[in-house]
């Protein structure tokens, strides 16, 4: 069996290097190699969004990225969203709006929502629903998630 590949990348603002097999997805590398288990696996084929991370400024489902593709990239995971001990306004808003029940989809939703508000600080309800349609939640019916994103948008604009 051929050897592993050496990958140098940047995760949550810090240089990270790791060894992986080319068949390992970025999701597997984050969870099993690097130990960042906040990114979740729900389907492993890009349809649930639980493994959403940001890569070079664009959100992707990390199950559909190979770990070796992380070479030279900048990646943000759920572990990199809060500012030290201060929650990001979206994280705070998810808590205050009871936008999570079981919480397994929450990391993906928060990473995707942050990316939306970074690009579109004042989205309509339809724009939020459209942007988040690649993230499945089975607990909430989305109502409180949408309200949390709307609420975070207001708070971030006031800030």
């Amino acid at each position: 069996m051929p050897g592993k590949t050496y990958v140098q990348t940047n995760i949550n603002g810090e240089h990270v290097d790791f060894l992986c097999e080319p068949r390992q997805s970025l999701l597997e590398c984050l969870r099993d190699v690097i130990g960042l288990t906040g990114t979740k696996e729900g389907c492993n084929d890009g349809n649930c969004g639980a493994c959403t991370v940001e890569m070079d400024g664009r959100i992707v489902t990390s199950c559909l990225v190979l770990g070796v593709e992380a070479e030279g990239k900048e990646i943000t995971t759920i572990e990199g969203i809060a500012d030290g001990s201060t929650l990001h306004p979206i994280q705070q808003s998810f808590l205050e709006n009871a936008a999570l029940q079981c919480g397994i989809c929450t990391p993906g939703f928060i990473v995707a929502s942050k990316s939306l508000l970074d690009q579109n600080p004042d989205p309509t309800e339809h724009e939020i629903r459209f942007w988040l349609a690649n993230n499945l939640c089975r607990c909430t019916g989305y109502d409180k998630i949408i309200r949390a994103v709307q609420d975070a948008a207001v708070k971030m604009q006031e800030a």
């Binding site: 890009g46 969004g49 959403t52 890569m55 664009r58 959100i59 992707v60 489902t61 559909l64 990225v65 995707a112 990316s115 939306l116 459209f130 942007w131 988040l132 349609a133 690649n134 993230n135």
Partner: peptide, 9 residues
């Protein structure tokens, strides 16, 4: 084609 995340790739 696909959702937001898929469109990035």
């Amino acid at each position: 084609i696909g959702g937001t995340q898929i469109q990035g790739r």
